[in-house]
Computed example of a mutant assay.
Amino acid sequence: MWCDNCLLLFPLRVGAMLWATLIMLYSIAGGIVLFKWGPFLFFTYPEWQIYGGVGLAVGFVCLITIFALGNRSYIWTRVCKFLWPFLIIVCAVRAIIMIVELQRGKDKIEWECDNGGQIWTASAEAGYAGSTSFPSGFCTSGFSSIYAAFVGALLVDLAFQIYLFFMVWRYQKRLESYQGMKGPFAGGYYA
Rank of each mutant, 00 (worst) to 15 (best):
M1G: 07
M1H: 12
W2A: 08
C6H: 10
L7P: 02
L9M: 01
F10W: 10
P11E: 06
A16H: 00
L18R: 14
I23V: 15
L25D: 12
Y26D: 00
S27R: 07
S27P: 05
I28H: 11
I28K: 02
G30L: 09
G30N: 15
I32H: 09
V33H: 02
L34Q: 12
L34P: 09
F35Y: 13
E47Q: 12
E47Y: 08
E47T: 10
W48Y: 09
W48P: 15
I50Q: 10
I50N: 13
V54D: 01
V58N: 07
V58D: 03
L63K: 06
I66M: 06
I66C: 03
I66G: 05
F67E: 12
G70C: 10
S73A: 15
R78C: 05
V79W: 05
F82Y: 06
F82R: 08
I88R: 04
I89D: 02
I89C: 05
A95H: 14
V100A: 08
V100Y: 08
L102Q: 01
Q103D: 00
G105K: 08
K108W: 01
I109F: 02
E110H: 14
W111V: 00
C113E: 15
D114T: 04
N115V: 11
Q118I: 15
S123C: 10
A124M: 06
G127F: 08
Y128G: 05
G130T: 06
P135E: 03
S136G: 11
G137N: 08
F138N: 01
F138D: 00
F143N: 01
F143W: 00
A149F: 03
V151I: 03
L154C: 02
L154Y: 11
Q161M: 13
Y163E: 05
F166H: 05
W169Y: 15
Y171M: 01
R174V: 07
L175H: 02
E176H: 03
Y178N: 14
G183Q: 09
P184V: 05
A186Y: 08
A191E: 08
A191V: 03
